[in-house]
């Protein structure tokens, strides 16, 4: 692909980001901002899941436990009047330490067993969040105090500021992941995915790479957890450890196509779009989850390698010089 096409694509990407950056300025509808924030949340979770789930080939059904842990550490500290920066750092540190602790025992498992054990972790976390009432306030959930009048403009407009933080995190994750997965590190992860024993013979310390991948994948999720808690001002065990937040990002990554930057992105755009259409058009109380489920069934049967590897999407991606991000 020639250089000009690549430059055009880059300009296009920057324009898209600029457009999203303009949204709070051109419209002050809180609906579109909070809807887009949820969209960013799904992109970040689907993308960060994919580092372990797609590139490393270990299906991590408990990926959102990092998100929930981050959200809870942030909220618990904020409630005790810790400054925002300290709470965020503590949330990230908690997630990294947790991932380092579990990586040795859990990475002895493979395939469905690893997936199941991680799924057990997130269900356990949800129960702990319900039961450890002294720390998490149990079923009541944690309500974060609203910023007092007269504090800085940043904390007053918390929806706008969390929108920008979310946008920044999304772009940052996408760029970091594009660099990371096309580096030597990414190559090592891919070789472990293809054949762990062979990778070991070629001098790759698979345990070290797996641990690093798990810890790295936790960081964007933890940060997103902080942004989520800060923007909603309320978290509940089900909102951060529940089945929706556990399974939707993974469904998005698998639907779009795992192991490529564009996969989770396309999956997140498609499913959030479908969800939005269903949400706004189906007025009934039920029927939405059914439609969502049917989409999942059709995709699982008709697109074994995800949407980005269908001919329909491969051509335009190649044309735009983005094939390297989608194979």
């Amino acid at each position: 692909m020639d250089g000009r096409m690549k430059k055009l694509t880059l300009v296009g990407a920057i324009l898209i980001v600029l457009y999203f950056a303009m949204v709070p300025i051109i419209s002050d509808s809180t609906y579109s901002m909070s809807a887009l924030l949820i969209f960013f949340l799904y992109i970040v979770l689907a993308q960060s899941y994919d580092l372990v789930g797609g590139h490393l080939g270990y299906m991590n059904l408990g990926h959102s436990s990092f998100f929930g842990l981050g959200a809870y550490v942030f909220s618990i500290l904020s409630l005790r009047a810790a400054p925002g920066s300290v709470s965020v750092l503590a949330a990230v540190a908690a997630v990294v330490i947790f991932s380092l602790l579990i990586s040795y025992p859990f990475f002895r498992l493979r395939g469905a067993y690893f997936a199941l054990a991680m799924f057990g972790v997130i269900l356990l976390f949800e129960r702990l969040a319900f039961n450890l009432e002294g720390l998490t306030q149990g079923t009541a959930g944690i309500s974060l105090p609203l910023p007092p009048a007269g504090s800085s403009a940043f904390s007053m407009n918390y929806l706008v500021s969390s929108y920008y933080l979310g946008l920044l995190l999304t772009v940052g994750t996408l760029v970091a992941w594009a660099i990371l997965t096309n580096s030597k590190f990414g190559l090592a992860l891919h070789s472990i995915r293809e054949d762990e024993e062979v990778a070991e013979t070629f001098g790759i310390n698979s345990y070290r790479y797996k641990t690093a991948a798990l810890a790295l994948s936790g960081i964007p999720a933890a940060l997103m957890g902080c942004i989520f808690a800060w923007s909603q001002k309320y978290i509940h065990p089900e909102s951060v450890f529940g089945l929706e937040i556990t399974l939707f990002p993974i469904a998005m990554a698998m639907l779009g196509g795992t192991g490529a930057i564009f996969g989770p992105l396309v999956g997140a755009i498609f499913l959030t779009g479908v969800e939005d259409i269903i949400w706004t058009n189906v007025q009934a109380e039920y029927g939405k989850l059914t439609a969502y489920g049917i989409v999942l069934i059709i995709v699982a049967i008709a697109m074994p390698h995800g949407m980005i590897r269908t001919r329909l999407l491969q051509r335009p991606l190649r044309f735009l010089g983005l094939g390297w991000l989608a194979t």
Binding site: L247, A251, G293, V295, I301
Partner: peptide, 11 residues
């Protein structure tokens, strides 16, 4: 199979 049966379960 996880994707598909998850869809069935939700529906």
């Amino acid at each position: 199979s996880i994707l598909l049966t998850l869809g069935v379960s939700m529906a």
